[in-house]
Simulated assay, not measured.
Amino acid sequence: MTYALTPMHLEPILSMAALARTPDEKIPELITQIISRPGNANLYMNQFQLFSIFGNKSFALDMQSLALQEGTIYRIEGSKSPSIRLLALMAPGDATDNAPLDYLIENTDIQLDLLYLIPGQPLPAALPEHDVMIVAAGESGKNRAVLQTLDPLIECWPRPVLNPAKYILNCSRDNVYQKLKDLPGLTIPPTRRVSRQALVALSNEHEAPHAPYTVRPLDSQAGYGLAKIDSAAALAAYLTASNAQEFYTSQFIDYRSKDGLYRKVRIALIDGAPYVSHLAISEHWIVHYGSARMSEHAERRQEEAQFMRDFDTGFAQRHRNALRRVSERLKLDYVVIDCAETMGGDLLIFEADNRGWVHATDPVERYPYKQATMQKLFAAFRAMLLSAMQATNSTAPQ
């Protein structure tokens, strides 16, 4: 299979990273700017980006559908004189369905083009010229059809390929458990995929075997639909409130620190090396950076700042062997893991995939310590792209 790579002049669409910085009062002005730009495809895709950020998911997806009827290749607004041209293979869907790469390349010399893959449709006859390609589609039930068709398409790809689809497919919660469960120094909750019928049967029992455990709908993200089950009655109530047909169940592991708070760390493994993205601290066992209200707690931000400063000699050093083995098992060039430490000092893994939100959009006046840490992470991502380019150039026929 051969591919025609062509230099393309593409009118860029707005970056989600830039949109995330936009204050609410500037939205009308931004919409006016979007409407004034040429091209229906970009108009629709810009609206998808905008309403994904500002909370109208249904309308955003409608706009994306209209955009993809017009075209499947889009360029993210960024460097006008790029040193690296990156092509990302995307799946249709909302902001959680693909790796949010525009946050990683913001204010760099990397040009990011997005190629959306439509199930049942061939690749375009002409593809944008690029230096490196990365599979950005994340593992999920709705993306599986796209991912399963990718590897035959990219066997003869004319440029280096990062994050092959066959490894992304291993990032389902149950597969990650199977991949990592026997690693020394690491704890990962036993996780299995179950049907609604199986959970209904459990809810009819007098006792709840294996409780406490957690349950969540199959493709849910950001804690949506996640609950801790302590009894058969609690499971029955959960199922009454959910219309999902398939779920993941996991053993609940209490990872509270001595002060009673829960701490969850987000790490990007880039070319096998760990880079911290955030430390979230919360009273609740479901820890997400937003719900942890870090902005309201100066002492938690101070702890996060110290954690980031000491990460290489602290957390990353304590768990260096476990993190290295995780990278070796998952075989992804870029993967984001959410993790913590158990009371016994093990690395506790919650999930691992390519879609975790890694960014530098928190207000600098409240989080001044984050910028240097995130720039280090972004530089590592750029270095990974350069390394892939140079490895290909060194093996090219002279």
Rank of each mutant, 00 (worst) to 15 (best):
Q47G: 09
D151A: 13
I229A: 05
A17Q: 13
E351D: 14
Y367K: 04
R256H: 12
R266W: 07
L226A: 06
Q390A: 14
L239F: 11
P184Q: 15
T96P: 00
K370N: 08
Y262S: 10
G185K: 12
A125P: 00
D230S: 12
A198K: 14
Q302A: 15
I267K: 04
F378L: 01
G185L: 11
A60N: 10
L50W: 05
Q371Y: 08
Q221D: 03
L386M: 12
W157Q: 03
V265M: 15
Y213V: 01
I270L: 15
Y334D: 04
A208K: 09
A241T: 07
G138L: 04
D113F: 05
A388V: 07
I253Q: 03
A292V: 09
R318F: 08
E341A: 13
I105K: 01
I53R: 13
K331A: 12
R382W: 02
R355W: 00
I76S: 07
G223S: 11
R263F: 12
N56M: 07
S220D: 13
I105S: 02
S295T: 04
A99K: 06
Q398C: 08
N56A: 11
I154C: 13
T395S: 13
E296C: 02
T361D: 13
I134Q: 02
S58H: 09
T214Y: 05
T6G: 00
K228G: 05
I229T: 11
M374E: 11
Q111L: 08
C171A: 10
R382A: 02
G39Y: 04
Y3D: 01
L385V: 03
L235E: 04
A165T: 09
Q221W: 09
N107D: 12
Q245S: 12
A165C: 09
N204P: 00
D151K: 04
L169F: 10
T6F: 00
R256G: 08
K181P: 00
R21F: 02
I110S: 02
D102H: 04
F54A: 03
Y255V: 14
A41L: 05
L10W: 06
S394H: 06
D94K: 01
F54E: 07
D131I: 05
I118S: 01
Q251C: 02
E70T: 03
A237C: 03
E207W: 09
A234R: 04
Q398G: 07
S277W: 00
A352T: 04
I110G: 00
Q49N: 14
S203R: 10
W357N: 03
Y116Q: 08
Q251R: 11
